[in-house]
Amino acid sequence: MKKYSLFLTILSLLFVLSCKDKNDGPSTDFSITFSALYGAETLEKNKDYTFNGFPIFVESCRMYLSDIRLINADREVIISDVEYLDFTPENAVSASPTIVFKNVPEGDYTSIRLGYGVSPVLNAKKPSNFPAGSPLAIENDYWAGWKSYIFSVLDGKADPDNNGTKNLSFSYHCGSDAVYKTVEFFTPIKVQAGAFTQAAITFDMKEFLTNDDGTPYDMVNNPATSNDAGNVVVAQALTAHWGRATKVSQ
């Protein structure tokens, strides 16, 4: 009997949930183009930029975003559980991936919320739990030692003493639940078939490497995130900058 009532509960829950979808009114495909910047420029692999008065370049820049929500007074719509953005793919110096979100309910949204990294529920899983091709099936961006996906990667080289040789490697691999962060951006976003079907989001890596007081992050003394799962000091300090580094526009 217990089993039966559980079954009924699940059934009615399913019914209620599916009803909700049907009442959502018209929907449309909506696309967002994501790019990485350094200051005002599109970030390119191995291109020299100035950071804190010395040259640096970036070799890898990629990240996960999860639980992407469009929000207004009436509702919160999760348009994606997780996305993987590689701004420095193997075959090009830079990339600005455009992701098409299917069946987004039309409406005037007042904000968009991004989760930087992989939300804790999904982060409890691992790549073998996901079908091939899923963003979470990427073995290289999972670290068993942390029991976490690698939320974001920023690797590169720097020449802090301006002697012409980039002898400092920096590698910021942020990950683990303690580092997951969500930020809500209050940029109005309109979704309407045929008229408002796209938006853009940029991540400025220069801001990512800048502290809240405007000073540059101490790359020389903290060139890498810790490999010790219990030590997330560098990762937390840097992920705290995402809000400032991100710009949403439509």
Binding site: N46, E59, S60, D155, G156, K157, T165, K166, N167, S169, F170, S171, N221, N222, P223, A224, T225, S226, N227, D228, N231
Partner: peptide, 17 residues
Amino acid sequence: VVNEGAFLNQIGFPNGN
């Protein structure tokens, strides 16, 4: 060499930094 992989010069470092 300028394009050597990011972690090569940290082999043999305790804990990255």
